[in-house]
Amino acid sequence: METTELTVNGKRHELEADSRVTLLDALRNHLGLTGTKKGCDHGQCGACTVIVEGRRINSCLTLACMHDGDEITTIEGLGEPGNLSDLQAAFVAHDGFQCGYCTPGQICSATAMIEEAKAGWPSFVSDDLAGPDALSDEEISERMSGNLCRCAAYPNIVNAIRQVAGGKS
């Protein structure tokens, strides 16, 4: 058993769990934060994306005990009905989801991705490694390709993110 202190959405939790417990299972099965989804459990779909210390990661491929003292933001920390974040609201308005299962991961991913782009990080499709001036649709799509959506809401996911990131169509 490992004792781990996690700060999730600003709230401190002391987790006492098997060392094998992933951050994803800690959130879902131990802390009752089921907004973060398990789609593959192997880093192949992105449904479990959360933001740890400001960066988006797959919470399925990291152990909870490796995050002692870390600040974690999950979908529940971004907004709630009646007080949605801009991205959450844009996903609703643009129908950036259907079944909704990949959606928390998409939104956490997009939230952090916009910051990565602001920091000037290039992507695989950037013509210039100096980084893009604005997020084109192609840039958004590449940067969001780690989040699978089987309902295939991709065009609307791009529309929602473009609206918030102020990119160009």
């Binding site: 988006r56 797959n58 290039p122 695989f124």
Partner: peptide, 23 residues
């Protein structure tokens, strides 16, 4: 790395996903 080893930047960015590259 971006300026003088662009092949390395490009190779890394061609791999995995943003989430995986962060970890």
């Amino acid at each position: 790395v971006r300026q003088v080893y662009p092949v390395l930047s490009r190779a890394i960015l061609a791999g995995a996903s943003g989430q995986l590259r962060n970890k």
